[in-house]
Amino acid sequence: MILTTLETVPGKNIIEHYGLVQGSTIRAKHIGKDILASLKNIVGGELTSYTELLQEAREEAIERMEKQAEQKGANAIVNIRFATSSVAQGAAELFAYGTAVKVE
């Protein structure tokens, strides 16, 4: 599966178009890490546990998007975009979407 934020796959022709595919995931860390993060809020700096959380969420979202594209018979996703929102404290939603296409 070719993933790209470009509108085309360089060097290849798009022969078929399958429309929008998307993957989203909402994840939360366990309370212990939330408490540690809130302590970190006092001194500032990177919240590594949240960064990790988002990394995992990103992989999961992309995976789901890929699965959807595979079901449609695509072999590439172009024009990928990410969107995030914090739905609740300590939980993050990561949403990935793109256009599934077939290239040759």
């Binding site: 809020n41 500032g44 990177e46 960064t51």
Partner: peptide
């Protein structure tokens, strides 16, 4: 921008950088 691509591209890959940074209490 990503429209006028160089002609000699052989491979592409999605690259991502993620970070969460907190403000400190004094600044807040």
């Amino acid at each position: 921008i990503g429209r006028n691509l160089p002609a000699d591209i052989t491979e592409t890959k999605l690259v991502v950088g993620i970070v969460v940074i907190s403000i400190d209490y004094f600044k807040k």
